[in-house]
Design a protein around this nucleic acid. Structure first.
Length: 426
RNA sequence: GUGGGUGUAGCUCAGUUGGUUAGAGCGCCAGGUUGUGGCCCUGGAGGUCGCGGGUUCAACUCCCUUCACCCACCCCA
């Protein structure tokens, strides 16, 4: 118990953390390119924010939240998703009084209580963006292309973008009615959960994976044919922009996202195949800011699951971020040389070189072996001879050759081995 | 929340119809004489056999409980 992390949590050990750093760096530089700035919001919020924002009829709020009372009996909840907190911050900081749109991104842990399984943890991580203050369709398209570029930059292929419109306050009720009418004589054929959805959120039935429900859905009236002129035009405009950007997509009239706040544009990025899951999704939520007590403010955003992204990369054999050991390892040939070696090590580090040493009083032989294991490129060896002569032995561990170098020329000599920046970023 | 699978050294695993000092490979540490890595050889350290209980003369091996992990469902990221 003391030696295992809580269920559904995991440590990201150095080898894995290298991949994360790389992936996050890709996300950050992409956001900079698109003009999105980072926002960091708290990992927990007032419970009401999620009940109101995410929707209290959603599964997330009904059974997946980490909710607790703090010492003064306030009900707080570990954020199950990122949008609600960002919306709250947008209002709290009155960002609506700045030039719109406000374009933000976040990377951080989210929490959902459920049975862990592959690509699903209780603490997981999302990268997401939110753009507030414009209802322009090209903003939807920008957000979607940003998501697409993210996966492309990582080298992922074969992803499918599913696009739909779930309508707005004007047209959704009409469609809903139509759908219910269609379903009413067939309620009996629905799966158990869908029978309760029939009452509370019939649109979600379209999204059910159950075969019986799916075959019913096929014959059901499609949202897209009930969209009001505004929503229909918006969807067409988004499509046009996507086409112009060269981004492939499939219209999926059955796509209904699980969060209540979506209006009009909804999309999901799927990874077809064995895992077959979605690794990201988003859409428009033009009513959410208002629902949270702010001025009417249209917005679009998406979130991608980082663990799932990493999983997909592994499936596709993409293994970035090779381990990079120190450039130089400082070894001593005899205990008397330790003080001098320490000085050399400090000087190398001050000069900006990655350098390391042994901390277990190992023999020279063992130090060399250790240097090799660390992946050091060079070994600087100091012993009585070197100290007496004011020089140092530099061994190239890659080629197995070594050289004498004067101590005051050492840094300049080593710098020629610095990996160039391209390699550094890999 | 529902269903199924698994749980032996740091890692991957073996362990005979329950039988007495629980093994291998890799890894780790140390040696293979005189200041040097990657190969090879030798030696060493390291295990509450997930936890608790039960059956038995005897359990890593059988039974129960519990915990954890994995997989599927639900749902989603």
């Amino acid at each position: 118990m003391l030696t295992s992390s809580p269920r559904g949590t995991t440590d990201i050990l150095p080898e894995e953390a290298r991949r994360w750093q790389w992936m996050e760096a890709v996300a950050r530089s992409l956001c900079a390119r698109y003009g999105y700035e980072e926002i960091r919001t708290p990992a927990f919020e007032h419970t009401e924010l999620f009940e109101r924002g995410v929707g209290d009829a959603t599964d997330i709020v009904e059974k997946e939240m980490y909710t607790f009372l703090d010492r003064s009996q306030r009900s707080l909840t570990l954020r199950p998703e990122g949008t609600a907190g960002v919306v709250r911050a947008y209002l709290q900081a009155r960002l609506y009084s700045q030039p719109q749109p406000i374009k933000l991104y976040y990377i951080g842990p989210m929490f959902r209580y459920g049975r862990p399984q592959s690509g699903r943890l209780r603490q997981f991580h999302q990268f997401g963006v939110e753009a507030f203050g414009s209802e322009a369709a090209d903003l939807d398209a920008e957000v979607i292309t940003l998501a697409g570029d993210f996966f492309q930059s990582l080298g992922l292929t074969g992803l499918e973008l599913h696009l739909n419109s779930v309508g707005c306050a004007d047209c959704r009720p009409g469609y809903r009615q139509e759908l219910v009418q269609y379903l009413t004589p067939r309620v009996g054929e629905l799966c158990e959960t869908c029978r309760s959805r029939y009452e509370r959120n019939p649109l979600r039935i379209l999204d059910c994976k159950n075969e019986a429900c799916q075959s019913l859905s096929v014959g059901a009236p499609k949202v897209t044919s009930f969209l009001c002129p505004k929503c229909a035009a918006h969807l067409r405009a988004v499509e046009n922009h996507l086409r112009a950007s060269g981004m492939a997509y499939v219209l999926d009239p059955f796509l209904v996202r699980g969060l209540d706040y979506y209006t009009s544009t909804a999309f999901e990025i799927m990874l077809p195949g064995e895992a077959g899951g979605s690794i990201g999704g988003g859409g428009r939520y033009d009513k959410l800011v208002e629902v949270c007590g702010g001025p009417p403010t249209p917005a679009v955003g998406f979130a991608v699951g980082l663990e799932r992204t990493l999983l997909a990369m592994k499936q596709q054999g993409l293994t970035p971020a090779p381990s990079r050991g120190p450039l130089v390892f400082v070894a001593v040939a005899a205990p008397e040389a330790r003080a001098a070696a320490w000085e050399v090590l400090c000087a190398l580090r001050r000069a900006g070189l990655n350098a390391d040493k042994d901390f277990l009083s190992r023999s020279l032989k063992a130090q060399m072996k250790y240097a090799d294991r660390l992946g050091a490129r060079l070994a600087v060896i100091l012993g009585p001879e070197e100290i007496a002569g004011g020089w140092v032995t530099v061994r190239d561990l890659q080629h197995g050759i070594q050289d004498r170098v004067n101590r005051d020329e050492l840094i300049g000599y080593l710098q020629q081995f610095l990996p160039d920046k391209q390699v550094e970023n890999k």
